[in-house]
């Protein structure tokens, strides 16, 4: 019983870490730059889920005040993540613009093909 409780208490965090590591692996191992950026967004979203998990309170409701209800989840992580999501797409857009420029310069977005072009021009 104690074991299942311990698993249930941290299950969210573990899935978040698995997602985070999946994104991390894509970023460091995949040669295609667009796949790298997708890995980065997976990583970002896992962090968002982590924050919203911190905000969650069992038996509480969304932080919109109504009469006759006292338990609300923590609004502060929601605020932070709300802005982080929009900033996330802004960084993704800049990254994609860089990828398009790299493609214009080298004709490819595959890292393994760009590397030899850089060493012997």
């Amino acid at each position: 019983m104690a074991l299942t409780d311990a698993i249930a208490a941290h299950f969210n965090y573990w899935i978040v870490i698995i997602l985070m590591m999946t994104g991390f692996y894509l970023v460091i191992a995949h040669p295609n730059k667009i796949n790298k950026l997708i890995g980065l967004t997976i990583f970002q979203t896992s962090v968002f889920i982590l924050y919203i998990s911190f905000a969650y309170v069992r038996g509480a409701t969304a932080p919109i005040i109504v009469e006759g209800w006292d338990d609300y989840v923590n609004p502060l992580p929601h605020v932070l993540i709300l802005t982080a999501i929009v900033v996330g797409i802004a960084t993704t857009a800049v990254g994609l613009a860089l990828v398009v420029r790299i493609h214009r310069a080298f004709g490819t977005i595959d890292e393994d093909e760009i590397q030899p072009l850089l060493t012997d021009p």
Binding site: I64, L82, T83, I85, V86
Partner: peptide, 12 residues
Amino acid sequence: EVSPGGGFQAGV
């Protein structure tokens, strides 16, 4: 201010 939403979501 009353329901979920705000400038960020509306903009997108």
